[in-house]
Design a binder for these strands. Structure first.
Lengths: 191, 191
DNA sequence: CCTACCGATCGGTAGG
DNA sequence: CCTACCGATCGGTAGG
C-alpha cells in the first residue's frame, strides 16, 4: 500500500492545477510533475484522473457541510446563525481556495453519475443555509420573505466568493462574512 | 468572403458546446459537426478555436453593458435603477443562457492577453452596477453601506444566475430580478 | 467546403 | 516509481 503522504502530495498538486488551469487543461503529466514523479508512476496511487477530481470535490463538500451543520442545528437567533454560518463558509474557502474553486467550478468535468453524486452533496449543503432562513421566517425574526430567493441570495454571496476573495488580503474571513451578512440582513435602503 | 450566416452558425454551435461541455472538452470537430461541416472546413471561417471563445466572451460583455449602461446614466431613484438594471441583466441571461455561461465560466481558457481584455470588459460592466450603489449612498436613499461589499453582493446575485436560472420556467426575468432586488434593498430582518 | 493528412499530445498500461 | 510505449485524438493545414 502506498504511503498516505504520496497520495496527499498528488491531491495537493491536482487541486491547485485543477483550480488554476481547469481540469481538462491539466494533464496527468502536470500532476505527476507537481508531485515529483513521472506520469506513469501516478497510476500506482490513483485509478484515473477523474477519480482525483471526484475526491477533491467530495472532500470540499464535506468541509463545508461539517463547518456549517453544527451552527444550523445548534441554538441561537437566526440572524446570528447566518453570520456564523457565513463566517464558517468563508473560513473554509480561505483555508483552501483551490479546493473551493474546484468544488464550485470544475464539477462539470465529472461523468454524469459522479456529477449527480456531487450535486447531491451540494444540495445537502445548500439546504443547510436554507434552514437558517426558514428558522428566521418562522420565528418572526425575518420578514416573510420569499424563502427560495432568500436562500439563493445567500448562496450567491458565498458561492461567488472564490471568484474574488483572496486569503491573506486585508480582511479576515470573519470580517468579510460579517460585511456580507449585515448587508443581507439589513438591506441597502434607508429605513 | 464567407457569408455571414455561416459564421453565425459556427458561433451558435460553439457557444452551446462551450457552455455545456466547457471550452477544453469541446473539439473543433464538435463545433464543425454542430454547424454542418467537417473540421477542416471550419478554418475557412475562423482563425482558431480560441478566437471563437473570445468573440463569444466579448460579445456577451457588450450585451450586458449595452443593456445596463442607459439605466445607470439615466434618471430615477437608485432603488428603481437597481431594480431595472437587475431586470436588464436577467433578460440578457435569459436571451442567451449559453453566452452568459461562457462569459462567466469559460474566460479562464483564454490566453493571458485575452484574459486581460475580457477582465477589462467585465470590470467596466461591474463598475456600472457599483455606480448605482454610489448614487444611492450619496443621495441618502441607501444607508451608508460599505460600497465595495454592496457591489459584490449585487454582482454575486446576478453573476450566479447562470448556475440556476433556466429561461422558460415559471418566473419571467423581470419577476426574478424583482425578487432579488427587493431582498437586497430591504434585507431579511424584520424592522 | 471536402479529402487527406500532420506533428503533438493525451490518458493510461506493461513490465520491471 | 521508472522506462518505454500504446492507440486515440487533438487543433490545425495543404491542396484542391
Amino acid at each position: 500500500m502506498p504511503r498516505p503522504t504520496r497520495k496527499a502530495a498528488i491531491l495537493d498538486a491536482a487541486v491547485d492545477l485543477f483550480a488554476n488551469k481547469g481540469y481538462h487543461a491539466t494533464t496527468v503529466r502536470d500532476i505527476a510533475g507537481g508531485s515529483g514523479m513521472l506520469s506513469g508512476s501516478l497510476y500506482a496511487h490513483i485509478e484515473s484522473k477523474e477519480d482525483l477530481l471526484f475526491e477533491i470535490v467530495a472532500s470540499a463538500a464535506e468541509q463545508f457541510t461539517a463547518a456549517v451543520a453544527p451552527i444550523v442545528g445548534g441554538p441561537g437567533a437566526a440572524a446570528d446563525k447566518l453570520r456564523r454560518a457565513m463566517a464558517a463558509h468563508v473560513r473554509v474557502v480561505a483555508a483552501d481556495l483551490s479546493a473551493a474553486t474546484v468544488f464550485l467550478h470544475e464539477w462539470r468535468a465529472l461523468s454524469p453519475e459522479r456529477q449527480a453524486a456531487a450535486a447531491a452533496l451540494r444540495d445537502r449543503y445548500e439546504a443547510l443555509l436554507g434552514d437558517i432562513i426558514t428558522q428566521g421566517v418562522v420565528s418572526g425574526e425575518f420578514r416573510p420573505v420569499d424563502q427560495k430567493f432568500a436562500r439563493l441570495l445567500v448562496l450567491s454571496a458565498v458561492n461567488w466568493l472564490y471568484m474574488w476573495y483572496r486569503p491573506g488580503g486585508e480582511l479576515a474571513p470573519e470580517a468579510v462574512a460579517e460585511r456580507l451578512a449585515v448587508l443581507i440582513l439589513q438591506g441597502l435602503e434607508s429605513p
